[in-house]
Amino acid sequence: MRKSFHEELGDLRKNVLVMGRVVEENVARAVESLLDRNSSLADQVIESDKKIDRMDMKIEQGCMVLLARQQPVAVDLRMINTILRMIIHLERMGDLAANIAQIAKEPTFDHYPSRIIDLFQEMAGLVQDLVGRSLRAFADEDRRLTLSLNDLDKPIDELYHQLIREFGQLHGDEELMNWATTMVLASRYLERIADHAVSIGERVAYLVTGNYADLHIVD
């Protein structure tokens, strides 16, 4: 009986990794669809987000059943707790990616300042790297990797603030300003995705050590 419990817990863990891969992919595709104004790719991201929502619910149900039937303790309890917390972050990250994809579907604007796009692209690259690392930290239960995530979030926050300053200095017609508004939002979504990835890292640190001191509040 216990063996099947650990198998079921292992399956849940694998499902989280699958969900994480879909989220990771959606973040990348959302950014790509925005930069290329590729509306069919954006549609795929939005459609795929529904899949993420379904996975979220299915994993949560699996956790509830294991809690009710097995009363897990120690590392097993921490794993279930980590999974329950992680899927909330992953689901939110999926929503944020879908929001970015939604922006990609809006009317395009050709005369944008390339400096802003460069900064956005740089930020997107760092965010994707951070997301990938947070998921790897979970897959490998690698506490050292989790410790680096907070530091990796700092340049993202700096780029975000730099972008906001750049937007603040823009002057132009309504078309430019509309474009700028949506890009401010997209930058904000990316910045939030990074924060969720850092939170996942903290959860993984707690999973590994059982020490609540490993949890910081991400602002």
């Binding site: 303790v73 120690a74 059982g210």
Partner: peptide, 17 residues
Amino acid sequence: IFTRPRDKRTENYITGR
């Protein structure tokens, strides 16, 4: 003990390993 036992042997026992 039931959330973060210090000893691996305790953990293995209480988690049914």
